[in-house]
C-alpha cells in the first residue's frame, strides 16, 4: 500500500519480514496490538515500543518519516494526553501556571503514548508495508466477508485516481483566482468541490460496473495468490507468541 502514502520506491531487495505469509503478518499485528493494550507497566511497554521499532527496521520502513507521521496524529489526542497530568487526581508533583500536575496522570499519559506508538509502528511494519491486493486476499482468507474485501479493494484502487481528480479541480479553482479563507464563499466552494468529486466518482463507478459486467463479475473473489506457511513463518510465529506470552505473564503473574 505504499502508493497511498506516496513515500516513493520499494527497496529492490525484499526484506525477510515482508516475505512472511501475509495472513501471519495481519494476525501478528492484531496480536501485538491486543498485547500492548493489555500491558500497563511502563518498562514492559518500552520493550514493546523497542520491538516495534525493530520490526520497522526489519521491514526497511523509514523510521524517522514514520515517527513524524505518527506524531502528526490528530492534534486533539495529543492535547488530551498533554492535559492528563492536570485532569487526573493524585499526588501533585509540579505546578504549571498554578495548576497542579499529578504523578498518576503523568504515568497514564506516558502509558497511552507508549502503547499508541508501539501499536502504530508494529502495524505499519507488519501490515502497512503489504501490497494492497495481497492485503485484500489475505483478509479474505482470514474469513473477512467477500463484499467487505471487494469494497476495500475498490477503495484502495480509486483513492489515487480520485486524489488526482481532486487536484485537477483545485487547480481549476486556483486558475479562477480562488483563495481559501474563513468566509461563506470558501465553504460553499469547498462544498461544491466535494459534491463534484462525489458525482464524478459515481459516474466513474457506473462505467466500472458496466466494464466488470462484460467480464462476468458476480461478486465472487477469485483467489489469485497462494499463501502457505513455510519454515521461516513457523519460526517467526513461535518466537512472536513466546515473546508476547512472556510479556503478559510478566505483567499479570509475576
Amino acid at each position: 500500500m505504499t502508493y497511498v502514502l506516496s513515500t516513493g520506491i520499494e527497496p529492490p531487495a525484499v526484506p525477510a519480514l515482508r516475505r512472511l505469509d501475509p495472513r501471519l503478518r495481519i494476525v501478528s499485528a492484531v496480536a501485538f496490538a491486543v498485547t500492548a493494550v493489555a500491558l500497563q507497566s511502563l518498562s514492559l511497554l518500552t520493550v514493546m515500543l523497542l520491538v516495534a521499532v525493530m520490526l520497522m527496521i526489519a521491514a526497511k520502513l523509514p523510521v524517522g518519516q514514520t515517527i513524524k507521521r505518527v506524531i502528526a496524529m490528530d492534534s486533539f489526542i495529543i492535547v488530551m494526553i498533554a492535559f492528563l497530568p492536570f485532569t487526573m487526581e493524585g499526588t501533585p508533583i509540579f505546578t504549571l501556571f498554578g495548576f497542579p500536575a499529578s504523578y498518576e496522570g503523568l504515568i497514564r499519559a506516558i502509558e497511552i503514548a507508549l502503547t499508541a506508538n508501539a501499536v502504530v509502528m508494529a502495524m505499519l511494519a507488519l501490515a502497512g508495508s503489504m501490497e494492497e491486493v495481497t492485503f485484500g486476499q489475505a483478509l479474505h482468507r482470514l474469513k473477512v466477508p467477500a463484499k467487505l474485501v471487494h469494497l476495500l479493494l475498490f477503495t484502495i484502487r480509486y483513492i489515487e485516481v480520485l486524489r488526482q481528480e481532486y487536484r485537477r479541480l483545485r487547480q481549476a479553482m486556483k486558475c479562477r483566482g480562488f483563495r481559501p479563507g474563513t468566509n461563506g464563499h470558501t465553504y460553499r466552494s469547498f462544498g461544491y468541490l466535494v459534491g463534484m468529486m462525489l458525482i464524478r466518482a459515481m459516474e466513474r463507478s457506473e462505467r466500472i460496473m458496466d466494464a466488470m459486467k462484460c467480464r462476468g463479475f458476480t461478486g465472487t473473489l477469485p483467489m489469485t495468490q497462494r499463501f502457505e506457511l513455510r519454515g521461516f513463518d513457523v519460526v517467526f510465529a513461535l518466537g512472536f507468541s513466546v515473546f508476547m506470552t512472556a510479556m503478559l505473564m510478566k505483567e499479570y503473574l509475576l
Binding site: 475498490f154 480509486y158 483513492i159 480520485l162 479563507g181 468541490l193 468529486m197 462525489l198
Partner: peptide, 21 residues
C-alpha cells in the same frame, strides 16, 4: 459494490481536504 467502493475512496480523499478556519 463498485459505487460504494468508489464513493468510499471519495470520502477518503475528502477527509484529506483541509478547510481554513
Amino acid at each position: 459494490i463498485p459505487t460504494a467502493g468508489v464513493l468510499s475512496a471519495g470520502f477518503f480523499v475528502a477527509s484529506l481536504i483541509h478547510v481554513p478556519i
